[in-house]
Amino acid sequence: MKETEIENSTEEFEHLLEGKENEIYVLRLYVTGMTPKSTKAVLNIKKICEENLKGRYELEVIDIYQQPVLAKDEQIIAAPTLIKKIPLPLRKLIGDMSDKERILLGLDLKQK
């Protein structure tokens, strides 16, 4: 493979990454009342968003105890569940959001 081609592809990749950096994130966090897991998850995801998506994210925290119908509509099984609605593809992150690496992977903020 020629040197120039590799350079080109790297450029392209960086360009793509730049584009991603401007993407708006719409996130929904479904929790179950004020359980320790719920509060932990809220705190964790807020921190991660502030660190990685500052100024370009929209995070809504929903208590499914209050709105059980949403649990059916959004196919929620586990709690807490974070749904990445935008950008696509849709992804569900379940747990108390303590595994930062996996969250960044799940939000496409980090490549494997």
Binding site: K37, A79, R91, L93, I94, G95, S98, D99, R102
Partner: peptide, 12 residues
């Protein structure tokens, strides 16, 4: 679609 990021339950 699912990524597990810590402790969870099936309360949903």
């Amino acid at each position: 679609e699912i990524e597990e990021t810590g402790e969870y339950d099936l309360e949903g």
